[in-house]
Simulated assay, not measured.
Amino acid sequence: MIALALPAETGSGGGFVAPKPEDLHLPDLIPWGAAYGTGFGKQMLVVLLSAAIVAVFFVIASRRGSLVPSRLQFIGESAYGLVRNSIGKDIIGEKEFRPWVPLLTGLFFFILVNNLMGSIPFFQLPAFSHVGSAYAMAGMVYLTWIILGFRRQGGRFVKTMLVPSGVPKPLLIVVVPLEFISNFFVRPLTHSMRLFATMLAGHMIIAICAAGTEFLFFEAGGFLKGLGVLTLIGGIAMFLFEVFIQVLQAYVFTLLTAVYIQGSLVDEH
Rank of each mutant, 00 (worst) to 15 (best):
I147V: 11
S70N: 04
M204W: 05
F57L: 09
I60S: 07
R152S: 03
G41S: 09
I147L: 10
Y135Q: 05
F180S: 12
S119F: 00
L240A: 15
K169E: 15
F150V: 10
I181A: 08
P121D: 03
L230Q: 05
L255M: 13
A250H: 15
L224I: 08
V131C: 01
D90Y: 12
A250P: 03
R71S: 12
T254C: 08
V163W: 09
R64Q: 15
G76Y: 06
H130V: 12
A211D: 06
I261T: 08
V59D: 13
F239S: 02
D267Q: 15
T144G: 13
L116F: 06
R194H: 14
V266K: 14
S86N: 12
I206P: 05
I205G: 10
M137R: 12
G106R: 08
E268G: 13
V174A: 09
A134V: 11
A220Y: 07
L216W: 08
L4R: 00
I208Q: 10
K89P: 00
G212H: 07
G226A: 13
V131T: 14
V252T: 14
K95L: 07
I245R: 01
I146E: 04
E96M: 13
L224P: 09
P27S: 02
I206K: 02
F196A: 03
G154K: 01
S129N: 04
L255R: 15
M137G: 11
F218P: 01
T190C: 10
G81M: 11
G222S: 03
A5M: 12
A52M: 10
V17N: 01
E242F: 05
L200D: 00
I120Q: 03
Y135H: 11
I92F: 06
Y36F: 14
M137F: 13
A197V: 03
A127G: 07
A250R: 00
G106P: 03
P121H: 01
T190A: 15
M199L: 11
N114T: 14
S165T: 15
L4I: 04
K20V: 05
F239R: 03
T105E: 14
V101L: 02
F215M: 00
V46W: 03
R152W: 02
L116G: 07
V259G: 11
T257P: 05
S133L: 13
A134W: 04
T190N: 14
A51I: 07
A138W: 00
Y251Q: 08
I261L: 09
L29A: 13
K159D: 15
T257F: 04
L255Y: 15
F150C: 06
L67E: 15
R194D: 04
R98S: 04
V17H: 07
K42E: 14
